[in-house]
Design a protein around this nucleic acid. Structure first.
Lengths: 347, 347
DNA sequence: ACTCGTTTGTCACACGTGTTAGCAGCTTGG
DNA sequence: CCAAGCTGCTAACACGTGTGACAAACGAGT
């Protein structure tokens, strides 16, 4: 702090050359220009003065700094232990290392847990980076539109359809994941499969999940697929009645949360999971179940999503042109303890 | 990309004023100088041109950017699922948000998993930030020394004693944690306590753990503390003989890994945990135990460590002078299933 | 002696912003 | 009428770096 840090001027003076020469050597543009003797003189001067280039100045003139921003519309690391963004970040970090980028986490905010924004009074924070990965369950469509209009390089994680506005995004392939999980039940021998959700099947993801599950059932004409009544949380008797009526031996639950509630209703009714009823879930949020029980279902492979997002972004920054790319990343099967062969098949 | 982004010059031209005026208004230095009419004109011009300050330029002149670097000597997010650094980062992020800093994750490296360095050919990467948090099990002492000599603002996470070289650091208080865990056994009624480690008690942390445990035992003169033979991994009979000889009813294990091995040896010998023997661990690494068993012991509270590191750093950056600060963060008790009242006391 | 090409650099501008000194024009006091 | 002060703004420098145009020295060919 007390003494200013060395600049190219200092190095130049120490080596007895002009500042330009220092810059040339620093950037390897000295092919056939600077004789080795001078080069050495400058290099040792750098070492002695402990010179290191100023990053801001460099960025100012080059308009690039090999830093990629990571922005989340919600706190990156929420207080609940369900670390939603963490696996994404893991993949992003890994791929960034590979591609040679540093990562800037935009955390500075109003500390209010919600309503963070890219544009703020002190400027578009994205001007600090070459490109950005954006995440969040509740992005601000206006901001996104503005980013597109300004031709910023960014990739969104999660499928977000915004009217009159197209951009790169990467998302888990929920539809294929739902197909996978349902196929798993079929492979175990289930022919009567129910589907249950705790929310109206209206969101993009909700529709994907339902359709994927239907796809799998439709591919086997021995399989009967029935939509069970929504919202199992409060109403146990409705659930039991529906199960009875449809004779299902297995249920696809749209989320771990749903699975937890269904499980609870079943167990308090004396129906054993997985012996009497198999359950699979279509998310992999953390959820607390009775000891020893792990939900069967799919694994979102968030790390792969994050890595792919960074790969797309790096491509853009390397000059790739062309229309926006949308990429769906396959989910993986996750073996748990809530799915097994149906009783009839087992005996 | 096609059209350059608006700068203060553009705004000034549009509003019919000089660039200085724009800058003054932008930085709120216009008290009693600029009449509201002009101010409005400039502000609307900004809005229409979609002006946002260039961060690099601002940083260049201000010599600060409210960004804190996070550097790890090993990959930040290792491939093993034991995310050692993650809880630290969590605390760092939280506190950074609070203090108004962004976070720059230094990831760019030679992709070799090991031997990452702060100093590299393209300069000291820390020149990009106001200050830095350093972590890692195997830091390079020479680099640290150099950072100190250059008077860089940084805080190390983890206690690292380097000869002739002092700096701020924050670390978990292993000694107090060991005391806490041992006190817990005593509170449960144990009077014969053994201590076992899987490595020579020579590292700083190893010594802290052993001493803390001794402290707790020494505070109660009814308690007998005995050091069991090291390295229980291979040798079951040695372990059993020692237990028999010392009549211990509980064992303090220096790590979860040790606990796992001891547990295995005991169970295969028909000794039930926690009924016949209580175990506590002095770390909180993830470890796989038989289903339904959770190690009792301490919780390192890494998030608090990370947060404190960032707080110290922020203080330094705000101008705090004075000698380096070393801070130990208390550990918390973590209830598990491997510690209970001793059989004699229970009956 | 004069031109020409090569080696070895240097000059000067650009990047976008913060800040201080100071300049016109006006008002006010004497 | 003149000095002094206030209002509203601007000129100019600084921050540290990258780079294209250009220049000085020098040897070689004519």
């Amino acid at each position: 702090m007390t003494s200013r840090r060395a600049t190219q001027v200092d190095v130049a003076r120490a080596a007895g050359v002009s500042r330009s020469t220092v810059s040339l050597i620093l950037n390897g543009r000295e092919q056939g220009r600077i004789p080795p003797a001078t080069r050495e003189r400058v290099l040792t001067a750098m070492r002695e003065l402990n010179y290191h280039p100023n990053w801001a100045a460099r960025m100012l003139v080059q308009q690039s700094n090999r830093v990629i921003g990571v922005f989340t519309y919600e706190t990156l690391f929420p207080y609940e232990e369900d670390d939603f963004f963490y696996p994404f970040l893991l993949g992003i970090e890994r791929q960034a290392t590979h591609e040679g980028y540093h990562l800037l986490l935009f955390t500075r905010g109003d500390d209010t847990e919600s309503s963070r924004g890219i544009y703020r009074e002190d400027g578009n924070i994205l001007s600090m980076v070459d490109g950005a990965v954006l995440m969040g369950k509740h992005p601000d469509p206006d901001e996104i539109r503005r980013l597109v209009q300004e031709e910023r390089a960014f990739v969104f994680i999660g499928r977000r359809e915004i009217a009159d506005c197209d951009f790169d995004w990467v998302a888990p392939d929920y539809r294929a994941g739902a197909r996978l999980a349902t196929e798993r039940l079929i492979a175990l021998g289930h022919t009567r499969i129910g589907y249950i959700a705790n929310s109206p099947n209206s969101g993009t993801y909700d529709i994907d999940r339902l359709e994927g599950s239907k796809d799998a059932a439709a591919a086997h004409n021995s399989v009967t697929f029935s939509l069970l009544p929504q919202s199992p949380f409060s109403d146990r008797s409705t659930l039991l009645a529906a199960i009875e009526k449809e004779h299902v031996t297995s249920i696809v639950c749209n989320s771990n949360e749903t699975l937890a509630h269904v499980l609870h209703h079943l167990e308090t009714s004396g129906i054993n999971v997985p012996d009497d009823m198999s359950l699979v879930s279509l998310t992999d949020d953390r959820v607390t179940l009775p000891a020893g029980i792990e939900p069967s279902g799919i694994h979102l492979n968030r790390a792969a999503v994050g890595a792919e997002a960074l790969r797309l972004l790096a491509d853009r920054l390397s000059g790739r042109e062309g229309p926006p790319i949308h990429r769906l990343i396959p989910c993986l099967l996750r073996d748990g303890t809530t799915a097994a062969e149906p009783r009839a098949a087992a005996s």
